[in-house]
Design a protein around this nucleic acid. Structure first.
Length: 508
RNA sequence: GGUCCGUUCGUCUAGUCAGGUCAGGACGCCAGGUUUUCAUCCUGGUAACAGGGGUUCGAAUCCCCUACGGACUACCA
């Protein structure tokens, strides 16, 4: 093989937010490029003016940035093959379409929507297995194949709108070897003469995609498998132009959370978890869809999780750094069947990543959450809190719920615990413990634990009962990390105040 | 309807190309241990080759059929 540089592209259209399937496609392109020291290009396919959604392009760029899968060429980056936005390349495509027409590989068609509809209806009624605009039917339609050159010219001059269609060869098997799916074969009889150039002066995906991939010297087309059926048309296009075709790798689709069909942009939040990398506000309806970023996911965990949806390294390792992912990645280990993902497993990935970051780092992020709640605390204090609650959390955003009692006294006390544990005499014991605490000069987890346990034993009290009530006083519930660690962190004064508060509130 | 593709524990999957370990791992779930509690953590367990035919000494693996699922079938990408 030749040693040409690997060049891949991610080519979304800005019709809304990028969903996680799109992010995964971008990721696989990115990993493949990095692995092979190639280029990863971002091209924006905005040839459909009707579906353009303001803010979508920016969203795509920002999402990729957050994920750390940034293109080294294309929209939002630099590059020598620009412009990278198809609307800005508009002038380019027509001549390619016309070249195809003049060489007899495409033709001009004048059929109206009604005429097309009528043709399909007629074929349906005749019991025809497919209703394509193809070698068989095109002779019955209004196009430059059935009309004389003069008529065609007259219509064009009269301003009649027309499209340019690909002229497929009749009854030919187009075979290609998909990197993921293997050999796939289509007979042109079941394909249709795809529109390459629309009457609004814009190319369709099929033309623009092939022209741009060629011009941008793309070597591997890695895209979702919704494209396999149109790949033969693309291959024919490469052939007609006399261009070298790239390798195709069609990846399995991500499935809807509820199990029916491929994941779509409209599935946001339906499954109880985000389908978008970042929060998205629909500019028309102002409806907000949640994002992984805002849900507290680390981009690295998100990417790691996404990489494993449809691909695996063949080893038992599951936690991969970006560098490891790049090294391990290969197209031939992409699976063939669609994947639905498990939000539970996604959380598990994030938990793993959370445990890997330092308490100091986590404390910094937790600090800014606290700031928003207008709670001020020393960073060292926050770090000590984090060291106790981090392992219990999946997300930094869980920290507040897990450790709010480190920053404010309990607002209420769990009734069930009161009923079960706060029996006769407990209040008195609590008061005595408060006195003991007062007398401790070296107030620490160890000294308080020793003192309390000695007290319980000397009075022959029930360990579980007293300890749980003490916990209830501190936390307001029967959960949380080691009780004496909590007491030591909040300090003597706060501990005393909480004991008195609990005794006062609960009364028994 | 037509075409193309797919199908291994509930989920993500290894194993399929080069047939031959009680089909392996992870998440979840269950149990036990640790913990004064809850969670984490540790240990163990649960659970799958879509079905039917072949080929073969032997099939998750190769072939055929069926079923099911998905994609595409737009002047959308």
């Amino acid at each position: 093989m030749d040693s040409e540089k690997i060049r891949v592209r991610f080519a979304p259209s800005p019709t809304g937010p990028l969903h996680i399937g799109g992010v995964r496609t971008a990721l696989y392109n990115y990993l493949f490029a990095k692995k092979n020291k190639g280029d990863f290009i971002l091209r924006i396919e905005d040839t459909d003016q009707n579906r353009y959604v303001p803010g979508a392009e920016e969203y795509i760029i920002n999402s990729l940035k957050w994920c750390g899968i940034e293109p080294n060429e294309g929209v939002g980056a630099s590059g020598e093959f620009g412009p990278y936005r198809q609307s800005e390349r508009k002038s380019l495509y027509k001549k390619y379409a016309e070249q195809l027409v003049s060489e007899g590989n495409a033709y001009i068609a004048f059929d109206t929507a009604e005429e097309l509809e009528a043709m399909r209806e007629r074929l349906k009624n005749e019991g025809s297995s497919n209703q394509q605009y193809n070698a068989e039917t095109r002779v019955t339609m209004k196009n430059s194949l059935t009309l004389s050159a003069e008529e065609v010219e007259k219509k064009i001059n009269a301003g009649e709108s027309y499209v340019i269609r690909l002229k497929l060869p009749d009854n030919e098997n187009v075979v290609f070897n998909d990197v993921v799916l293997g050999e796939i074969s289509f007979n042109t009889k079941v394909l249709d003469d795809k529109i390459l150039f629309k009457s609004d002066g814009m190319p369709t995906y099929h033309l623009a995609n092939v022209v741009d991939d060629h011009l941008m010297q793309i070597t591997h087309v890695i895209r979702g498998s919704e494209w396999v059926n149109s790949t033969p048309s693309h291959i024919l296009l490469y052939r007609f132009f006399g261009w070298k075709q790239p390798l195709f790798a069609h990846m399995p689709l991500l499935l809807k959370p509820d199990g029916k069909g491929k994941l779509s942009k409209r599935d946001g939040d339906k499954g109880g978890f985000p389908v978008f990398p970042m929060e998205w506000t629909n500019p028309e309806t102002s409806e907000i869809s949640s994002g992984y970023k805002e849900s507290g996911y680390f981009p690295k965990a998100f990417i790691n999780m996404l990489a494993f949806l449809g691909w695996n390294p063949g080893t038992e390792q599951e936690i991969f750094s970006e560098e490891e992912l790049i090294q391990a990645f290969s197209l031939d280990r992409i699976g063939k069947s669609g994947a639905r993902f498990d939000p539970e497993k996604a959380r598990w990935f994030n938990h793993q990543y959370l445990q890997m970051i330092s308490d100091e780092e986590a404390a910094k992020e937790f600090g800014s959450i606290l700031e928003k709640k207008e709670i001020t605390a020393d960073i060292n204090y926050i770090t000590r809190v984090v060291s106790l609650i981090k392992e219990r959390a999946n997300f930094i955003t869980d920290f507040w719920e897990l450790g709010c009692y480190f920053f404010e006294p309990p607002k209420s006390y769990d009734e069930k615990v009161i009923k079960k544990r706060w029996k006769e005499g407990v209040s008195d014991s609590m008061k005595e413990i408060a006195k003991i605490f007062e007398s401790i000069t070296e107030f620490s987890s160890e000294t308080t634990e020793l003192a309390v346990k000695e007290f319980i034993q000397s009075k022959n009290l029930n360990m579980g009962q007293i300890l749980n009530c003490l916990r209830l006083s501190m936390v307001g519930a029967a959960s949380g990390p080691n009780l004496f660690d909590i007491i030591a962190i909040i300090g003597k004064d706060e501990a005393l105040s909480r004991i008195y508060n609990a005794v006062e509130t609960i009364k028994k």
